[in-house]
Design a protein around this nucleic acid. Structure first.
Lengths: 229, 229
DNA sequence: CTTCTTAGATTGGTCCGACCACCCGGCCAT
DNA sequence: ATGGCCGGGTGGTCGGACCAATCTAAGAAG
């Protein structure tokens, strides 16, 4: 038996994806009115309830604004938008948004350094062992894909060690953005990576040297990631 | 004209608030099953559609997980949760979550410094003028509430000047968390604030001295904000 | 006894049609 | 020009029905 899995998606999910893509691709700009619920339902050939559900999900994500009696319109982008749709903003319609990408990398570089420092202050030694284990796997990794995944795992583990929950949430979002656009970020890893910085960071964390850990991770972000774009 | 606004809330909004509060207060823990939609509808005396709408909004925020045929359960908190509900996590049931508060302040201090540095690099001079204007208002402010608001405005303006959109989104979320819990954060401002750091930061930004700007804002975060909790 | 099957009950997903609440624009009397 | 009225369009809620996925427990097979 070797059939493809049956992919069953909720109607409302598909509708939501449809509208979301249309918005991030630029078919609708902030302030533009969206078609009425009844109209969309007719267009898609589904019940109005499903359209409503989709529309309300997009509203919860901050993409659209719904006003009773006056219809729905595209919300003011990038000001109050939920970070959940960040992954979809990175490459709308396949075209990478380089300004946004560089913003993300900038922030990540900063957070890398801080995360290293915090981890050095708070980490349990058992967690450091796990971090070292990930690093050894990273050293032996063959494929680009594997290197990419382990590099992210390394950062995730460090975030965990920092003990800051907000940072965890934020890291999850950035990770989601990376995962959904793997091919775009892959180019950063195609020539392999230099794990010298990782080793410096682990050493610094083990010695509880926050300053050195910050330096190591910050250098890594600037040299390995920042230069790639 | 000085009337109070008439507020009319959607049924589904009230339901969503109800369930959200029950969850963040701890009446339901991650993994716990929620009552069935039909049951809730009967309990609240509303139609099932409204309950569904509320439930799906909470799902979009990452608070609950809905499985077709198996009911809804509280999602694994704080791992994949949307940052939109951060404001409600700060003081569930009126009890401040000090661990979370300190996490937020920690992150804010770090971001303050970075924001200052970025602003020094990228800011338009006209924006610096606006920043200075906010600061002069801050110097003359009388009430605690006013000081609090202007201090936030000062930071917001600097975020704008940094030009990083991700930082803007993040800053909006933190600001929302502050606004919804003003009374908790007010204690930080009750003895007035020392605007020395603000002045140092403005001066550094005007001279495009990124290092000095980072130092000034970082110091402010550590001394004025970090010490209060 | 344990394990597997299966039928029924439970729950979320979708649909339909109806009505209410609200917003907007145009028309009219003032 | 102003305010009030009204009608059409829109989102919000309702109730009821059926479909689809899941769970549960009784019964069959070993």
């Amino acid at each position: 038996m070797d059939f493809n899995p049956i992919r069953r998606r909720k109607v409302s999910d598909q509708i939501a994806d449809n509208i979301r893509d249309a918005i991030v691709k630029g078919d609708y700009s902030p302030g533009d009115p969206l078609p009425a619920e009844r109209e969309m339902a007719g267009h898609f050939g589904v019940n109005r309830s499903s359209v409503r559900e989709a529309l309300h999900r997009l509203e919860a994500w901050g993409l659209v604004k719904i006003r009773h009696g006056a219809g729905a319109e595209v919300a003011d982008f990038l000001s109050n938008i939920g970070l959940e749709i960040l992954p979809f903003l990175i490459a709308p319609g396949g075209q990478p948004n380089f300004k946004l990408l560089s913003d993300i990398l900038d922030l990540r570089v900063e957070l890398l350094g801080w995360t290293g420092a915090k981890a050095a202050q708070k980490a349990e030694m058992s967690a450091v062992d796990e971090l070292e284990q990930i690093l050894s796997q990273l050293d032996q990794a063959q494929s680009t894909k594997e290197v990419q995944r382990l590099d992210y795992d390394f950062f995730d583990q460090m975030v965990l060690m920092s003990g800051n929950r907000i940072l965890s949430m934020l890291s999850n979002l950035i990770r989601a953005a990376y995962d959904k656009n793997q091919d775009i970020f892959r180019s950063l890893y195609e020539e392999g990576i230099n794990t010298e910085y990782h080793h410096r960071a682990v050493k610094a964390i083990r010695e509880r040297d926050a300053h050195a850990a910050r330096q190591a991770m910050g250098d890594y972000g600037r040299v390995a990631l920042g230069g790639g774009l």
